[in-house]
Amino acid sequence: MSASWRPTASLELLRQRASLLNCIRAFFAQRQVLEVETPLLSQATVTDLHLDSMVVELHDSKRRFLQTSPEFAMKRLLAAGSGPIYQICKAFRRDEAGQRHNPEFTMLEWYRPGFDDRQLMAEVEALVCTCAEQHGDGLSDWAVSGFERISYRDLFQSRLDIDPFAASDQQLIDLARQQTASDHLALSRDDALNLLMAVVIEPTLQAPVFVIDFPASQASLAATELTDDGHRVARRFELFIRGMEIANGYLELTDAQEQARRFAADNQRREQSGLPVQPVDEFLLAALASGLPDCAGVALGFDRLLMLISDRQRIAEVISFDDNNA
């Protein structure tokens, strides 16, 4: 092993990290949002095709999943009547390591009963600006002009001259292959959209922007609606700053049956792709059935927010020890 025992972040950065945590807690305290803690280990996990959870053995026959986000447990608290809540916790994702990824990372997630996605975007913007301002970063300039909002469709049309809803699967796949000079890639429609988004569009999103109205196929746990021109879109938003994905939020799906249907559909696709079929979280479904208040929720990458504020390019520079010397 050539990795050093020393922290991958400087001590100065660690002090900034502590200060950012304080700033976030103060922000929510002022708005009377309750800080909660939920288990990192749980009996069920996400069915999402592109999220791989890690498994921990409690003893011979007892296995638990490390959470990929605290979403399910927090929704159970909401259904139990918690009111607005937030959490700062570790999340774990298998096989995710790179310049902006570490297999364990820190997530800030919060839920606002009675808010819709538009209201929550405004709060995300206020939080990011407050944090940036208190840490003396140029980010605070954006507080003046406000974060832009652009629909997924307009984004693809303006950057790539293609309509992500009307284009055929083959058109999107051809474009994705051409843009990455990778003819060999086997892609689905959503893979092609994701690849174009991540590789071509994302680097151009430098000033803060909320991308909204995602295709319904990428709804995940968001509610969907029909647009005036007949496309089904997800009430989902993603915040990008300096070419980096910072936060992902939803107008939350509250329909237990629809949720169960999406879990089953995910698992079916997992099976087709040779991925393990995941146990469905029955506690979550029961909580939804008993009644989740209408709410919006968002997950924000805490480490990435710190990268922005401290102007660092690698996640290793903002966490005490990265995966190589953890």
């Binding site: 999402d48 592109h50 999220l51 096989d95 995710e96 390591a97 790179g98 310049q99 902006r100 990824h101 990455t180 000079a181 990778s182 959503d190 893979d191 959209l193 994701n194 690849l195 988004m197 991540a198 590789v199 994302e202 990428q218 995940s220 993603e238 994905e245 992902n248």
Partner: peptide, 26 residues
Amino acid sequence: YVKPGKGQAFNRIKLRNLMNGRVWER
């Protein structure tokens, strides 16, 4: 390593062709 939060993960790999010295990105 490139991964949209909810999407397929990709690796963008830069390689130097040892036959002609050209750099490719795939």
